[in-house]
Simulated scan of single mutants.
Amino acid sequence: MSAADLAVDGVTLTAGARRLVEDVSLAARPGEVVGLVGPNGSGKSSLLRAVYRALRPEAGRVLLDGTDTRALPGRRLARTVAAVVQDQVADFDLTVREVVAMGRSPHKRLLDGDTAEDAALIGSALAAVDAGGLAGRSFDRLSGGERQRVLIARALAQQPALLVLDEPTNHLDVRHQLELLGALRRLPATVLVALHDLNLAAYYCDRLYVLRAGRIAAAGPPAEVLTPRLLAEVYGVTAEVAVHPRTRAPQVTFVPADPYPAGTGGRSAP
């Protein structure tokens, strides 16, 4: 399946009297990795839920290859979009391989068994997140980080044209964060991902959308978006932004308002 063309067009989302997202538009062209960044409560997760059709917009549309997702049959949507969400209920009394195999369900009829192609895709998905050695283990006995990697493998096995991920690096150690985001870069899919780590977002994303209080505060390539002024306005922090000497990506360093030098026991040096 080819990568999808995603367009979010003037989407507004509400929860009762509270407005979660207001008049947000964004685009992710086929094969791009597009990042959503912003402080907690800025609307990132809500916007992602609208993209994978867990929330219905009060206004605006989500378009996949020009078609409103609300017009897509559920089975076709499941074949096109895969999502990895935060705090996913995932107490499966299954082996890791069985959990990852669930990603193949949208491509099968009821009671169809795994084919050789399914087995190959499941194996590739596990390898992509360094979880091949977990295949025979019980999912409900894994650590939080291991579970996260398996759930991402399940989404990869689905072979989506659009992959939506909400803080996928949560619970992962540094090595697996880098390996996961590197794997996303190599996918033949469009990727929309919410990230807290601005340096990871700067290196792995083609473009960033910065959300603040449910609205787009800035959008563009990371080098244009991640500026000290924007970080002060959106996050309320002092930051320095330099070009990393090896990666050439923006590198953000936050400056504490009241720094404590090392070795002072948590007190400012005299």
Score class of each variant (00 low, 15 high):
residue 225 V to F: 07
residue 96 V to K: 02
residue 51 V to Y: 02
residue 21 V to H: 03
residue 259 P to D: 04
residue 153 A to W: 02
residue 246 R to C: 07
residue 123 G to T: 05
residue 126 L to I: 03
residue 188 P to C: 03
residue 5 D to R: 12
residue 54 A to M: 11
residue 237 V to W: 08
residue 179 E to D: 15
residue 208 L to C: 10
residue 36 L to N: 04
residue 55 L to C: 06
residue 137 R to F: 07
residue 78 A to D: 02
residue 222 P to H: 05
residue 82 A to S: 15
residue 220 G to E: 05
residue 21 V to M: 00
residue 116 A to K: 00
residue 127 A to Q: 14
residue 164 V to W: 11
residue 49 R to C: 05
residue 211 L to V: 07
residue 147 R to C: 14
residue 26 L to G: 08
residue 259 P to E: 08
residue 61 R to C: 08
residue 201 A to G: 10
residue 104 R to G: 02
residue 65 D to R: 06
residue 204 Y to D: 02
residue 18 R to Y: 07
residue 132 G to Q: 09
residue 225 V to K: 10
residue 184 L to G: 08
residue 190 T to V: 07
residue 148 Q to I: 09
residue 50 A to L: 08
residue 50 A to H: 10
residue 84 V to G: 10
residue 223 A to R: 15
residue 122 I to M: 02
residue 6 L to T: 03
residue 117 E to Q: 04
residue 164 V to G: 08
residue 75 R to G: 10
residue 113 G to T: 08
residue 52 Y to T: 00
residue 224 E to S: 14
residue 11 V to W: 05
residue 67 T to E: 15
residue 38 G to P: 08
residue 237 V to Q: 03
residue 49 R to Q: 13
residue 70 R to C: 06
residue 199 N to D: 11
residue 37 V to R: 03
residue 130 D to G: 04
residue 235 Y to H: 10
residue 131 A to I: 01
residue 123 G to E: 13
residue 9 D to S: 05
residue 158 Q to G: 04
residue 173 D to L: 00
residue 113 G to Q: 01
residue 86 Q to W: 08
residue 244 H to A: 13
residue 156 L to D: 11
residue 187 L to C: 13
residue 55 L to W: 03
residue 123 G to F: 05
residue 126 L to G: 01
residue 76 R to H: 13
residue 82 A to C: 08
residue 229 R to E: 15
residue 253 T to L: 15
residue 203 Y to T: 14
residue 235 Y to V: 12
residue 146 E to M: 01
residue 166 D to T: 11
residue 254 F to Y: 15
